[in-house]
């Protein structure tokens, strides 16, 4: 082929640059559009709900009178359910991820497990709710309790945590494993001293993001029979008398933030809609701050590790 003349090269570069620029502008416009939608949503929610946010809104039970109604039982319920969700899904999810990445032999059995995990992540959440209704509520007799809700949401986010764990582990170069094994470390020592510590950032990020998804889930929690109007709190998990730690709260009926919102929105009175917007703001604040934590964790742990 003949050498390109200077003119031809310049022309080529110009046309490449043009394509570059077009894509850049297109990407920016699309990004701004989606951000604007989100922003509009937040502004709309705030203009509706801001007036209702006060200390009493957080410390009052729901009520027939919109100006007295609060979200105390809802946020306490959400917090306790998240606690059960985290306590069940995190250890199982991390253990499964570590097993699949570090221990499992690549065979048909693990291939089937992997496909199932991927599929599980795509199952609509209401299906999880139906399954939980059959298994946890009726078979195990847990009732429509905090325990049932926590375990259901735990199952829902399990695939996310497993996948996050595996992806975090995969970023560790095999040279690090070889270095540890070469001085005589066992597989478990390698996992405990290296694999888990170095993937903590990625795993924690996955956990926080999955929890922020779980806290907003409504369908499965309604399916298992969460209450929509509840004017008492579960027994406190901690007390000043022996045995100090109690577990009867896990069998307590409950409600969660999105259900409280749903309940208020479906009422005819305008004042309750304002309450719903205010509760929405708080729920949004919860998830956004969880995402902020996730971003912080990612940056914090990435700073300490360089391959």
């Amino acid at each position: 082929m003949d050498q390109l003349s200077k003119e031809q090269i310049k022309k080529l570069i110009r046309s490449h640059k043009l394509k570059d620029n077009i894509f850049e502008i297109l990407g920016l416009i699309l990004l701004l559009c989606s951000l604007l939608v989100l922003l509009a949503l937040i502004i709309d929610l705030s203009t509706d709900g801001a007036a209702r946010i006060s200390k009493s809104f957080l410390t009052n039970f729901p009520s027939r009178f919109p100006d007295k109604a609060g979200i105390l039982s809802a946020w306490v319920g959400s917090t306790l359910v998240m606690f059960v969700t985290a306590a069940s899904a995190i250890p199982i999810g991390i253990a499964a991820g570590v097993y699949l990445e570090e221990y499992a032999k690549k065979n048909l059995f693990t291939a089937i497990i992997e496909i199932n995990i991927t599929n599980l992540a795509g199952v609509p959440s209401i299906i999880f709710g139906l399954m939980a209704l059959g298994i946890f509520v009726y078979k195990f007799n847990f009732g429509p309790s905090i325990l049932t809700a926590g375990l259901t949401l735990g199952l829902l986010i399990l695939p996310i945590i497993i996948t996050a764990t595996r992806e975090a582990i995969r970023t560790i170069p095999s040279a690090i494993r070889e270095a540890a094994m070469a001085v005589g470390a066992t597989k478990w020592q390698t996992v405990k001293h290296h694999v888990l510590p170095y993937s903590t950032g990625g795993i924690l990020t996955g956990i926080v993001i999955s929890l922020s998804r779980a806290i907003g889930e409504t369908a499965p929690v309604i399916t298992i029979g969460a209450l929509t109007f509840i004017a008492f709190l579960p027994n406190a998990p901690i007390s000043t008398e022996a045995p100090f730690i109690h577990f009867d709260w896990i069998f307590s009926p409950f409600t969660v933030m999105p259900i409280q919102m749903f309940n208020w929105v479906s009422r005819p009175q305008q004042e309750f809609h304002v309450n719903a917007a205010a509760a929405g703001m708080i729920l949004l604040l919860m998830t956004l701050s969880m995402n902020a934590i996730a971003i912080y964790l990612r940056i914090y742990f990435r700073k300490k590790i360089k391959w």
């Binding site: 170069p173 040279a175 690090i176 070889e178 270095a179 540890a180 070469a182 001085v183 005589g184 470390a185 066992t186 020592q189 001293h193 290296h194 170095y198 300490k304 590790i305 360089k306 391959w307």
Partner: peptide
Amino acid sequence: MVFQKPNPFPKSIFENVAYGLRV
């Protein structure tokens, strides 16, 4: 074994050398 590409652990100098003993 010493590998072709240096493969230190992302830990302190001390912990890198001490790792074999810790194990």
